[in-house]
Design a protein around this nucleic acid. Structure first.
Lengths: 228, 228, 228, 228
DNA sequence: AATGAATGAGGGTTCATTCAT
DNA sequence: AATGAATGAACCCTCATTCAT
């Protein structure tokens, strides 16, 4: 049994090492990176890749799953049961932004993931893992929101999952634009009228999330007379 | 002179017909569609494509430009100078959502456009056209917002362009998730805990944009007499 | 009849104009020039080319024929019946060298002609014209040499045609090397030990032809006493 | 270490086998032979070619380099230090002619090489190898001539390299004409007045080289007593 | 388990030639 | 006669995947 476990652990180490290499390669070449690129970055033979991943698409998917898991870790670290739900939501939002900054390439991969998945012919197994990782990530978020609803802090007329999507989409949308802006900084050829790159996206994220958050709070009922 | 004009018009018709074909092909095969695919969809020889577009990348870019232009048309139709700025913003938002529904494939193309541009080696000419189309689109939006700021209806502490980005990112982020959900409806293999596809994204868009809008309005109504 | 003649002359003019264009294009692009290149240099439509030449190969062949004819003109101009054969031979040699200098591109074409002919699928008609032009050119040379042999000035143990080939090959070989050298001047990347380009090829031509010429002369038996 | 050596040797064998195939293909199709032609002649897949040569141009260049090296081998075999320089020059000339006869297709390749190089976009590495092979070949020739000059056997007023070029051009020019003649034998459609193909080119080479050689010898025999 | 040589199906692009106007 | 849009057969090269060692 121990032999079997040992083997499994070694195998897992190898897989992770390959994914590390794939991550580095993704950074410089994006999804167009070839299996040769990955193999040489991992310092193994190309054929060996196929001993650990059934296909290129599955390899990318595994990398996405890993990125989702690490993002989820950040989310979980941001959650403190002692905090009030709105505070936790802010913390998660900040954790997301920090992740996007700290792991710019993995964040880029997550942004690309829908695209990658859509064009991939990965195995059902990998797709299932992806779905599970994705669900698990959303859970952190929705649990907090649901808690807030249950405790009467957030409005009850919008579902927790709907709220989660609003926050997620807003933040991701902004961070994505930020990436586009970054890209255009270096690739720019002709001037455009608007300068994306001078905007302070991170402030925008904070501001817009705060706006959303305020709107989702149950308005503290002011003393009866005060309301018109 | 008439001959020349006639030829130009025919040529433009052909280009549009090719772009129509490319649009259909994009719908089924995405950016990985080949020139062969496009040619046969357009019912012309592959070589003919190169009489109208210098390269595959340029063809995609032209398609993106066309999509941006048609979206801009929708935006402009939604603008009525008689409306108050907040109303116009709502109208534009609704127009965007309708566009995403009516032209799902073109909307998907717009979502992919950053990705496409990033990986393209299109001619500077095409890239310039894209930049122009993009600017032109943003102008509709920012002009309205700026007008609202100037008239004291929107807060003055956030720039019109920043506001535009907030709205754009929020709406686009949600619509993108909606696309992901749609996609997973057909590709789904294993159940996920959350059912994206049952959400009413369009209501989410309306709700979240309304939240943002309310937060951007100048709250305090000046004393009645002060308003001209 | 006059109408017919007129038409023929016009047609010939057109052909020459096209060949002029082809010559210019050949100068800049070599044999890889496309029919589009030639058509646009000639300021006519591509299809029109096919009204004057049955194929691209035939067009190149016609150009070669024209180059041979013009070289032959130079040769004939160099011949003065009053001159002694050795003088004429020198004159022809000089004319050849001058032609190579004055019409570098046409000379290059002649050097390439064997290559072009070998890979061409030109019509028998064009090939026949080429053969005739080539024969005609050689005639100028061989007639002179034969005359010299008949008059006892040149050795009788080598045929006139053989002599012609010796001169031709020697001169052409040197001029060809000169072209290679020229080319390498601009294309050079790494130093080679020998510097072709510093050689005075034209002097080499003169020297080596003179050597050959001297060797072909019947040694004037010196009057026993007078010559040292 | 032995494994590595073994692999290197195998690899070299493969390269040579591919070049052998390319040589055969060149014989029948010239430079226009396609990679498909070469691959099927070598009985390997097309993609495999690219494991051994970075591009088609590089493959042709390698073939040229190999031809130059084998010609150089012939030259070196022809050189016997015991021979007097004029004898060595004759031997080299004969070796050249024999090479042109024994390896007609490789000789044709060498004749085409300037053309090929001019139109190639081969890697600097390949171009460098070509330059080195070319230099090395010329060295055999020029060393002998220089030796003759130093020993007072050849005239001192013409450089060794210039002499080499004279011989080379003369011989190559004749052999080239011979090739043209050969070619026309098979491709001939209409009779030409002169029958190249009946000429004894090899005798012409010998004769003309002898003429050149005689002219380069220092004529005046020093007074009998002075010679050692 | 690991290797890396070999495969071969495409993909984008070019261009000589044709043909309807 | 002249046009130039359209054709489609090639061509070079790439790269995910396989398989003998």
């Amino acid at each position: 049994m121990s032999v079997r476990e040992r083997r499994d652990r070694d195998r897992e180490h190898r897989k992770q090492a390959i994914l590390d290499a794939a991550e580095r390669v993704y950074f410089s070449k994006g999804v167009d990176a070839t299996m040769d690129d990955i193999a040489s970055a991992a310092e193994i033979a190309k054929g060996t890749l196929y001993l650990y991943f059934p296909s290129k698409d599955d390899l990318w998917l595994s990398l996405i799953v890993r990125a989702l898991a690490s993002l989820e870790g950040r989310f979980r670290d941001a959650v403190d049961p002692a905090d009030a739900p709105p505070v936790t939501i802010r913390r998660i939002g900040e954790a997301y932004v920090r992740y996007a900054q700290d792991h710019a390439n993995m964040f880029r991969l997550l942004l690309d993931s829908a695209h990658i998945v859509a064009h991939s012919s990965a195995s059902p197994v990998s797709l299932g893992e992806l779905a599970r990782a994705s669900d698990s990530l959303w859970t952190v978020f929705t649990d907090t929101l649901q808690d807030g609803i249950d405790r009467g802090i957030f409005r009850g007329d919008i579902g927790a999952f709907e709220m989660a999507i609003i926050f997620w989409s807003n933040t991701t949308g902004l961070l994505r634009q930020m990436g586009v802006a970054r890209g255009s900084e270096t690739r720019r050829r002709e001037g455009t009228a608007y300068s994306f790159e001078r905007l302070d996206f991170l402030r925008l994220v904070a501001v817009s999330n705060e706006l959303l958050l305020q709107s989702l709070l149950v308005k503290e009922q002011p003393p009866p007379a005060a309301t018109p």
